[in-house]
Amino acid sequence: MYDLKLYESIDENTWCPGCGDFGILAAVKQALAQLELAPHEVMFFSGIGCGSKLPHYLKANGYDSLHGRGIPVATGFHLVNPELKVIQVSGDGDSYGIGGNHFVNAARRNVDIVHIVENNQIYALTKGQYSPTSEKGMITTTTPEGAIEVATNPLAMALAAGATFIARGFANDPKYLANLIARGIMHKGYALIDVLQPCITYNKINTKEWYRMRIYRVEDEQGYDPADKEWAFRKALEWGEKIPVGVIYEVSLPTYEEQVAVLKQGPLYRQPLHGPTMAEDFEKTKREFM
């Protein structure tokens, strides 16, 4: 186990005191230390939102991309450099709203990346508008009469889309979350870790007390079978009085990159730029057009 100090960043933290993101940051560092991954061996991608600032708050390789677009950038990166562990971190608005198409396609594409979603059920950085996971009826600055749409169900969406690892954690239980993240990192293929994250400033409904009263660990339940898709669907659909946390689905299927013959020859970024075969290859290609 590495020293947590290894991942300390000098950037000034701008999260609200008491924000659930602190727990997620602690869990991420804990997972890296646990897996003994040095800062230069990990590549974080994020988008825009409070939670997307996370790469700045730890020491590792980081890429803070556009709102919703972290997943494609992470995908392209990993195909070229699979030697680094690639982790995408962004909120519910970024991941399930503006980046929803990328989320669904990442799940079915099964590129070996981890997707941590800081799900606080609100747009917090823009100061309190309802998000794709805000519950129906929630009163926010843009829904003074209550949200009309039903909340999206990210776990069921990921499952339907073909994800191979789906877990849910809780920001205020960083130790447990760290284990989920570590398992996600070790999983081969796309791993979704949806994290219930209280927003102490803009979400007065889904507070840490609200969650504490409802959540339970799936693995403690009888009949726990994360390889069973039907069981996983039942768990994914559970929400309200009881909210499951833990790994709800995990199967081993070939990753996207394992199915691309050329990528088995070693990382693309290590390919010599001035290969001796350049002129030769070109002659071959050219002949087709003579």
Partner: peptide, 25 residues
């Protein structure tokens, strides 16, 4: 020795190309 990926939309296409370039390709 190269590879090609079909993206889900044009934003993903450019995003992927940028990620690949960022990694060194």
């Amino acid at each position: 020795g190269g590879t090609l990926i079909q993206a889900e939309d044009e934003m993903a296409a450019l995003g992927m190309a940028m990620g690949a370039s960022y990694a060194g390709a």
